[in-house]
């Protein structure tokens, strides 16, 4: 008998003849009190991000390019996914090298390692947990680009901010097969005496630019 057949047979045998009906109570909050994109929900997100020691910046359509440029003032090379809103990069100094990356034309990992920073958009942000989700679409890019460079500038539109995790999950579940990275602050470890140290293997600096309407 194949391992597959044997394991499935053992599972069936273990469970016995009549399968149990297990009802799942879902009394937990599926929606929060704070409206998506509201000032209050953005404030909550900021509180969580600051707690994780992410750096939070506010921008409008008019000044987002300046905010991004200021954050990248010291970056010689910046990686961006090829679907990123080009206007966000409009104020970068001419000397900055911008590497475009896509699934069909990926940058080699050495180039990502040599780059100073990456700029991406996001799919959704959950205020309650301070979580930003990237789902690999063309404005967020391949998973590697937001991982290898040491500085991640992530532009989140305030309209993308929801209150509770179930709201975010239900939005993401429209496309469950997309490769997702949930980011809650910069990489961190608590492995040494449970003391939190920010910045291990992922980007050590996370800038979140909250882009208002």
């Amino acid at each position: 008998m194949s391992a597959r057949a044997e394991i499935l047979a053992k599972v069936r045998e273990a469970l016995g003849a009549d399968p149990l009906e297990v009802p799942v109570p879902r009394e937990y909050r599926e929606r929060g009190d704070l409206k998506p994109g509201s000032a209050a929900v953005v404030e909550l997100l900021v509180d969580r991000l600051v707690d994780y020691r992410a750096h939070v910046h506010h921008a409008s359509a008019a000044d987002v390019a300046d905010v991004v440029a200021t954050l990248l003032a010291d970056a010689g090379t910046v990686v961006v996914p090829d679907g990123l809103d080009a206007s966000w990069l409009g104020a970068l100094p001419a000397a900055t090298t911008v590497l475009h990356d896509s699934r069909s034309a990926p940058q080699p990992v050495e180039a990502l390692d040599a780059a100073d920073a990456v700029v991406t958009a996001a799919r959704v942000a959950c205020a309650d947990t301070g979580t930003i989700v990237l789902d690999g679409e063309s404005d967020q890019g391949r998973r590697a680009i937001s991982l290898v460079p040491d500085v991640h500038v992530c532009v989140v539109r305030t309209a993308q901010v929801v209150h509770l995790l179930p709201e975010a999950v239900r939005l993401l579940s429209a496309h469950p097969a997309r490769p997702q990275t949930w980011i809650s602050g910069p990489s961190a470890t608590s492995d040494i005496e449970l003391q939190r140290v920010e910045g291990v293997h992922g980007p050590r600096t996370l800038h979140v630019v909250l882009l208002g309407a």
Binding site: S104, R178, P179, Q180, I183, G185
Partner: peptide
């Protein structure tokens, strides 16, 4: 409240 990183993937994503 949330761990820093959670990765979700489904089979193979061409190019990523």
């Amino acid at each position: 409240r949330m761990n820093p990183y959670t990765s979700l993937w489904t089979g193979v994503t061409p190019g990523d």
